[in-house]
Simulated scan of single mutants.
Amino acid sequence: MMKLRIITLTAMVSALCAVGAMIKIPVGVTSAALDSAPAFLGAALLPAPAAGIAAAIGHIVSAGVGGFPYGPFHILIAIEMFLVVWGFAKLHQNKHQILKWVYAIIANGILSPLPFYWLISPEMFYGVTPGILIATIINVVIAGICMPIVSKAFARREAH
């Protein structure tokens, strides 16, 4: 029963990531969207690997909606999203209430674009990082506002 619940919640969070992927953030990067806010919220409800899977799915949908502007590099970005949200979920589960948000912003907004400094060009990194950082902050703020509400509602549901 527990596995079915985790699979169902992962699918629901993935679906919310897909919906968020269709809400683009106009920062010059076509795949910047509200796809990671639900994944960060999923960290409060799911084991770390499941939350990471939802984030990776959300990114692939976001990239698809944006026309896959960086081609196969989106597989790398999906893996990065998995790792960012997995780490965020681990920090959340270990009760690192401030560190998890700082980690999310630095890992997703600054470190995730870093491989593109070498894979494409330094100009690419400097060009996309400000937009990705802004999009990350927007996603984190949304998740930060919603997480206490979702956690409280979920805890109430668990009590019944």
Rank of each mutant, 00 (worst) to 15 (best):
M1D: 05
M2A: 05
M2Y: 11
I6L: 02
I7Q: 02
L9G: 01
L9T: 00
L9F: 12
T10I: 06
A11S: 12
A11T: 01
V13K: 06
V13I: 08
A15P: 06
A15T: 07
A15F: 11
L16A: 11
C17V: 00
V19M: 12
A21K: 01
K24V: 08
K24G: 05
I25N: 10
V27F: 14
V27M: 14
V27H: 10
T30M: 14
S31H: 07
A32V: 01
A32Q: 06
L34T: 08
D35A: 14
D35N: 13
A39S: 06
A39P: 02
L41V: 03
G42L: 04
A43R: 11
L45F: 04
P49I: 04
A50E: 14
A50L: 06
A51E: 09
G52D: 12
G52M: 11
A54V: 07
A54N: 15
A55N: 02
I57P: 09
H59G: 13
I60T: 03
V61G: 13
V61K: 14
S62N: 11
S62C: 11
A63N: 07
A63D: 06
A63I: 04
V65W: 15
G66C: 05
G67F: 12
Y70R: 09
G71P: 07
G71K: 07
H74N: 08
L76I: 04
L76Q: 10
L76K: 04
A78W: 07
I79R: 00
E80Q: 08
F82M: 00
F82N: 00
L83I: 14
V85H: 06
W86R: 01
G87C: 15
H92L: 06
H96G: 02
H96Q: 08
Q97V: 10
K100Y: 12
V102F: 14
V102L: 12
I105Y: 03
I105M: 01
A107N: 11
I110H: 10
L111V: 06
L111S: 13
S112M: 15
P113T: 14
L114P: 14
L114C: 11
L114M: 15
Y117E: 10
Y117M: 04
W118P: 03
W118M: 06
I120C: 07
S121Y: 00
M124D: 02
F125S: 09
Y126D: 04
Y126E: 09
T129Q: 03
T129I: 14
G131C: 07
L133I: 10
A135T: 13
I137C: 02
N139F: 01
V140H: 01
G144R: 07
G144S: 09
C146N: 01
C146W: 12
M147K: 12
S151Y: 00
S151T: 05
F154T: 04
A155Y: 05
A155D: 15
R157S: 09
R157I: 12
R157T: 08
E158N: 09
E158K: 11
A159N: 03
